[in-house]
Design a protein around this nucleic acid. Structure first.
Lengths: 241, 241
DNA sequence: CCACAATTTTGGAGCCACTGCAAACTTGAT
DNA sequence: ATCAAGTTTGCAGTGGCTCCAAAATTGTGG
């Protein structure tokens, strides 16, 4: 049992997994999630049903697979914010960037409309996506609490996470709804941009007016003029995964 | 076929429905949601499985039943706010009231810990509860948009709904977590109260600093005069399209 | 090359939520 | 009593998913 390179065995495993996932997503896109049985996927991928469940523990996993990774995405935005940049500003920049580049990480992909239609047609997938969202929020809340070492009874990190991700969630939902209604991206983008700017203005201005017991976190969130000599940016360690 | 009082037929229907629901929740509490089959419920209620599905379209419906009604609860808080009272203030009052009276409408029921444990142990029920939450948020957003007749591209109602319900959600989650950890209500309540006050302070102060294009809604949300206190330092952008 | 062990795949039997259908059965009105 | 409408039930099935034990495949040492 040598832990060598990648033996034939492991390569085959990887290949089958990818084949199953690809064929599955293809079928889902073509016929809709609920109109495809696992048996169908298995047959198309030339494996047994048990093999499918060997790689993916649920049918929904078969669809997410790639989306799953995005759970720690907000955490990365938090951690990789620029020196001196407030948390809200970092999220604002990230989101506006995503609009410009039409990045997939906020579901603004070209083709995200078909994706959204597939998801919306299937209660199971809708539930799944919500679960991913909850995971993101929890991860961000943990990261915030971690970074500004708030104690367990301090709800500010959770609140902040909810506000930040709620904001982006609603922005994206609305944009995708417009795309689903047939609006071209060229018309959606500028509106989305102004909406995003307004929304983040609200967040920033909102937090600016607060001087609560968790002042350090709030200052870091909004980027503070409270105490001028304080360095809100912590030393950034090199932790890229 | 006269639709008179309540005929024998309808009474029997109501009785069976209640009997099934009661027996089901009893079994769920005793053994956990996933450890009870619908067949078991049917047998205990002395009906066939088909009859169960005749009244409740899913197994989860069997558990919710009573909880379902709570979807329009935030809307009621909005609509029944006192004259001159801002929306945020209304929600604050409602929540603090709920703490004092330990009202079930925010899951602060005595015995809500067992309820929570049952729910948390079942992925299906967790998903169901999240769905209820989403329904609440959507209903509140619609009601807000309705009341202040915002147009379809105005995201302020949705944002406000997300912030308000996100706030109460996190407050309640934390309180229930403490209860689950064995803390007595007498210790939880005062902490929850200060946390709630801080959180609603944040909301109120946050909205106070905002002068956007949807000024009427914001003013209604936070209460108070528009140009009374501080100036928004970020110059307000034009509202085109 | 040949065993032999470790894995992977597979078939089969089965559970459970849920559906559709047509035969009972119950109720209400004539 | 009788008939129509509504309700309950049994039965047969689908589809996701699990468990298990028998193949088939791959890595290792002789």
């Amino acid at each position: 049992m040598g832990g060598m390179r990648e033996g034939l065995r492991e390569r085959k495993k990887r290949e089958t997994r990818e084949r199953i996932s690809d064929i599955a997503t293809g079928l889902f896109m073509a016929k809709g999630f609920d109109n495809v049985t696992v048996a169908e996927v298995a047959q198309a991928a030339d494996v047994s049903v048990n093999t499918v469940f060997n790689y993916f523990s649920t049918k929904e996993d078969l669809f997410a697979d790639r989306q799953e990774v995005a759970v720690d995405l907000p955490v990365r935005v938090l951690r990789e914010r620029r020196p001196g940049e407030s948390v809200v500003r970092a999220f604002r920049r990230d989101y506006l960037d995503a609009i410009d580049t039409r990045d997939w990480r906020h579901g603004l992909n070209a083709g995200s409309d078909v994706f959204a239609r597939i998801v919306n047609d299937s209660p199971a997938l809708v539930a799944r996506m919500r679960e991913v969202g909850v995971g993101r929020e929890r991860a961000l809340a943990r990261a915030l609490a971690d970074e500004f070492d708030a104690d367990a009874d301090d709800l500010a990190p959770k609140m902040a996470a909810a506000y930040l991700l709620g904001t982006t969630r609603i922005l994206t939902e609305h944009a995708v709804a417009m795309l689903l209604a047939g609006e071209p991206w060229e018309r959606v983008a500028p509106l989305l941009r102004t909406q995003a700017e307004q929304a983040f203005d609200l967040l920033e201005a909102g937090l600016r007016a607060w001087g609560g017991p968790t002042a350090t976190l709030v200052v870091a969130l909004r980027g503070g003029a409270d105490d001028a000599d304080r360095e809100p940016e912590r030393d950034e360690e090199e932790h890229e995964d």
